[in-house]
């Protein structure tokens, strides 16, 4: 099991991957990706009980579903660095004939991806469906999912959230990336959603807050608490408070880098703030 320093080193390297991937093709979504780097590293390195090799059915292991598919850079980097496909393949992000499509898909057969996402609001339903199949298969493993906070404006989420509580789907931990930003600005300016805790609780979920969503130890602690709450008849929601663009000072606390790539100079600054740890791809 890696220690905290090793996880932090990996996180730094993942940030470099994200910046270099979107810079190379001058497209992609660095802001949300950077904000979730610690979460993905913790999830794939520590939290999930997963097999080294990939098969679609994933019987006998924890599964993860990414609903806000636009943060594919962090997903791809962590999948590659967790051994699902060669790290060099990160070079092909968003290029023609690549398995690393702009948004994640099963269509090109990329190991680690179990459903396409990008059109928002569909991940809750898919993850809950996978959790139901785990129960039918008497598989005690957990389903993890990640959703954007702005994404919760899509109505389908609430159909799934209502269903899961009503049907005691208690083998799922769904995390909301609470960065408070979306494309057009602050979530509170675009369409304020009020208290997400109150909403999830009203729908019958148990809610865990992780206030320091960019701190690996806080994530590990919060997710361990979330896991301890599974199997008790209620689905579990984690409200993960993150900073969009975390780790690159000029990208932080703004929606400006939601879907914009850094230029050469900005890339250099970003990389200087995140010195190479495990080796670039």
């Amino acid at each position: 099991m890696p220690n905290t320093q090793q996880l932090q080193d990996l996180t730094t390297q993942v940030r470099r991957d994200i910046l270099r991937m979107v810079h190379k093709v001058n497209s992609g979504h660095p802001g949300g990706s950077l904000g979730c780097a610690e979460f993905f590293v913790a999830l794939y390195q520590e939290i999930m009980d997963r097999k080294d090799s990939f098969d679609m059915n994933g019987i006998g292991e924890d599964l993860f579903f990414l609903s806000n598919g636009h943060i594919s850079p962090v997903f791809y980097s962590v999948l590659a660095r967790s051994g699902y496909f060669p790290i060099d393949e990160l070079n092909t992000f968003r290029l023609i004939n690549s398995r690393l499509q702009g948004h994640p898909t099963t269509h090109e057969g990329l190991p680690g991806v179990r459903v396409a996402s990008g059109s928002l609001g569909q991940g809750f339903s898919v993850a809950i469906g996978a959790a139901e199949t785990k129960k039918l298969n008497n598989d005690s493993h957990i389903i993890y999912s990640l959703h954007g906070d702005g994404e919760l404006q899509e109505g389908q989420n609430w159909e799934g959230i209502m269903y899961a509580a009503a049907n005691n789907v208690d083998n799922i931990i769904s995390t909301i990336d609470l960065n408070g930003q979306q494309i057009d600005g602050a979530t509170d300016d675009v369409l304020p959603m009020g208290s997400l805790r109150a909403k999830f609780e009203a729908f019958g979920w148990v809610v865990v807050d992780i206030e320091k969503g960019n701190n690996i130890e806080a994530i590990l602690q919060g997710m361990a608490q979330a896991k301890s709450l599974t199997g008790k008849g209620k689905p579990v929601c984690v409200l993960l408070k993150t900073v969009m663009g975390n780790g690159v000072d000029f990208m932080m606390h703004t929606h400006a880098w939601h879907g914009k790539a850094p230029n050469d100079e900005q890339l250099a600054i970003g990389l200087a703030q995140n010195a190479e740890t495990l080796g670039d791809y």
Binding site: M56, N57, G58, I59, L63, F65, R114, V115, Q122, G123, F124, S125, V126, A127, I128, G129, A130, A131, E132, T133, K134, L136, N137, D139, G155, Q156, E159, G160, M162, Y163, A166, N167
Partner: peptide
């Protein structure tokens, strides 16, 4: 058998997810 209520979008997503694991 899964009664999903009047929520067709969720039904389609649930079904997609249920295939993962062989259903």
């Amino acid at each position: 058998f899964f009664q999903v209520g009047i929520a067709e979008a969720n039904m389609i997503g649930l079904a997609a997810g249920m295939t993962i694991g062989g259903k």
